[in-house]
């Protein structure tokens, strides 16, 4: 956990991030969690890789264990329409400079919405079992369907 006094209770000061975490039932005045280390004034202008996320930000956590199937992305077919980006519920489609770069497997829950909204033929995103290697998945990509 990160440094800084973030929770104070009536029985004396206790630091969140000290040896012992403050339990949710021990807090009487509420907790302030900071999303970033240091100044967060221009966060909207920074890309994820330029930000200094604090340990409290869920960006540093993962929900990869929720998945049993995962989407795999085929760059060769993608037309960068960004449908998957706008409808991904887990902010897991990585798009930079109008280009789709790939999938953030730390935060993807495998809901398959991106595959459903993909307009290309064949789809540029397909679901595979979690253990599938990306190379073998790309090798068995389906051919273009003729109506």
């Amino acid at each position: 956990m990160s440094k800084g006094i973030l929770a104070v209770d009536n029985r004396g000061k206790r630091e969140l991030g000290a040896d012992k975490l403050v339990g949710w039932d021990e807090v009487t005045q509420g907790i302030v969690l900071t999303s970033f280390e240091g100044d967060a004034a221009n966060i909207a202008s920074l890309k994820a890789e330029e930000r200094t996320y604090s340990d409290f930000n869920s960006y540093t956590a993962t929900v990869a264990s929720w998945r049993v199937i995962k989407p795999i992305y085929n760059r060769d077919i993608c037309i960068d329409c960004q449908n998957c980006w706008v409808w991904c519920p887990d902010s897991s489609i990585i798009s930079r400079d109008k280009q789709m770069l790939g999938i953030d497997y730390d935060h993807c829950k495998g809901c398959q919405v991106c595959v459903e909204v993909c307009p290309t033929n064949p789809k540029s995103l397909l679901m595979f079992v979690e253990a599938e290697e990306i190379e073998t998945a790309l090798a068995q990509w389906p051919e273009k369907k003729k109506n």
Binding site: S58, V63, W85, V86, P89, K98, G110
Partner: peptide
């Protein structure tokens, strides 16, 4: 268009615990 929209930087982070496929986070992200 959507390409232009996609250059904005997300301020709603992943690894929240909403169900997979929940529309809440689509709306909040937007």
């Amino acid at each position: 268009n959507l390409k232009e929209f996609s250059t904005n930087n997300d301020r709603f982070e992943g690894a929240h615990t909403l169900c997979p496929g929940c529309a809440h986070s689509m709306i909040v992200r937007e």
